[in-house]
């Protein structure tokens, strides 16, 4: 009886450890927070730090984008929450947007964040109901960020200076 318990628990532990190794190969976590966040989200118990998220939202609405990104990153250390990643991408977009040109570095960071948001959202569909935003879906935001880092003929249109930030 004791041997069966040892063998059974060993089998479960080995399979769980093997699954962890495969998960690490697939997800390539870079920090302990990403490992713990990934594992807790796998079992559906991952939660963001709500006070930090609220701070981030307040900074975001006050156009304090670097502060907003720092607060959002603190709220979602494991980068496993689609909505927070969406706001990080939106903060990159709003800070990097310019009438004449966009900040490519910020837009690329935004693209990476919105890609994470899309990957985390159920079926890749993410819609954020926030009346302060002009783009509510991750697809719109991604397209806007993609346009910002792509050089195309419309970039040389002088009427471009009259466009508005979304």
């Amino acid at each position: 009886m004791k041997e069966a318990i040892v063998r059974g628990s060993g089998l479960v532990a080995s399979l769980a450890y093997g699954a962890l190794v495969l998960w690490i190969y697939t997800n390539q976590p870079q920090t302990i927070a990403q490992v713990s966040g990934g594992l807790t989200s796998m079992v559906g118990v991952y939660a963001i730090d709500q006070p930090s998220f609220d701070d981030g939202l307040r900074f975001f609405r006050g156009d304090q984008f670097p502060e907003a990104r720092a607060a959002f990153a603190r709220a979602d250390r494991a980068e496993r929450d689609a909505r927070t990643q969406f706001y990080i991408a939106y903060a990159c977009y709003r800070q990097g947007w310019g009438r004449l040109y966009s900040d490519d570095t910020l837009f690329k960071d935004g693209l990476a964040a919105v890609d994470r948001a899309i990957a985390l959202a159920p079926n890749g569909r993410l819609v954020v109901d926030d009346p302060n935003l002009q783009m509510h879906s991750a697809d719109e935001l991604r397209a806007e960020l993609q346009r910002g880092v792509t050089v195309e003929a419309s970039d040389f249109n002088p009427l471009r200076v009259f466009r508005k930030r979304k």
Binding site: E3, V6, R7, S9, G10, L11, A13, Y17, G18
Partner: peptide, 14 residues
């Protein structure tokens, strides 16, 4: 022993 086969060896190898 069952401990070596079920726990020690998989743990070390993984």
């Amino acid at each position: 022993s069952p401990v070596r086969e079920a726990i020690v060896l998989p743990l070390m190898l993984l």
